[in-house]
């Protein structure tokens, strides 16, 4: 698993993918920083984080698109699957590599926090909770997009499908407001990753949301493993 993680991590920076992800993420987040913090002369980092979390929807597919789809396209999965590495090891190694790049990028947004700390007031408690929710949300998105990458053998399909799925997840909130059936609303809000992150953005630590994000990610990782195993049996 460790060797897979290392190779994928190097892969992100041997190819433009890692730089594109980091570059676009940081550019967009500095625009958001300008709009939410600088222009309104506020030190409300939670609303900055809340707006940044929409970037996951847009950018996580970039991180995940090649992870499994490319292996199948280039038939390099033949190396992995005939090596003494287990299927969960392969999937987890790849997942953690994507999470590492994401976490590194988030770490760099610490610069924005530093700026606010110099010119204003930072409440460390709510900042930690905000970032925790932000990271967990990213982990959940990456897990779902990894699953989608595992379903196809083409990177373009993977990225478009993942973007679509993320978009639907985001729209759950909108769909909710358009439907007036209670149980449907309950169901939709249960699955909404954005609604789940609301407590964090108010500076509250929520066990329910942490649990939800982690189980959301775990479920998709398990699905990915299962899906790849089934594919081996089918021989497709």
């Amino acid at each position: 698993m460790l060797s897979i993680w290392k190779r994928e991590l190097q892969g992100y920076f041997f190819t433009p993918v890692g730089y594109v992800f980091m570059g676009v993420f940081l550019t967009l987040s500095s625009v958001i920083f300008f709009l939410t913090i600088m222009q309104s002369r506020s030190s409300d980092l939670l609303s900055f984080i809340g707006t940044m979390s929409y970037l996951w929807m847009l950018l996580c597919p970039v991180l995940t698109m090649r992870l499994l789809a490319e292996e199948k396209q280039k038939r390099t999965d033949q190396l992995l699957l005939t090596s003494p590495v287990s299927l969960p090891g392969i999937v987890l190694g790849k997942y953690l590599a994507a999470v590492t790049v994401m976490a590194l990028t988030v770490l760099l947004t610490g610069l924005f926090v530093l700026i606010v700390a110099i010119y204003g007031q930072v409440y460390s408690g709510e900042l930690v909770v905000g970032y925790l929710g932000f990271l967990l949300q990213g982990c959940a998105f990456i897990a779902m997009d990894l699953f989608i990458s595992g379903c196809t053998s083409n990177q373009v399909t993977a990225v478009v499908a993942a973007f679509g799925a993320n978009f639907v997840l985001w729209m759950l909130d909108l769909i909710q407001s358009a439907i007036n059936i209670d149980w449907v609303n309950g169901l939709l809000s249960f699955f909404s990753l954005y609604e789940r992150s609301e407590p964090f953005l108010m500076g509250q630590f929520s066990f329910a949301s942490v649990g939800y994000d982690i189980s959301f990610a775990a479920a998709f990782i398990l699905l990915t493993i299962h899906q790849m195993d089934a594919r081996r049996y089918r021989g497709a």
């Binding site: 190779r7 041997f14 280039k74 038939r75 390099t76 033949q78």
Partner: peptide, 11 residues
């Protein structure tokens, strides 16, 4: 060694 060698071009 499969029919198509499983190589990573970027390495």
């Amino acid at each position: 060694l499969p029919e198509k060698p499983p190589l990573y071009d970027e390495m």
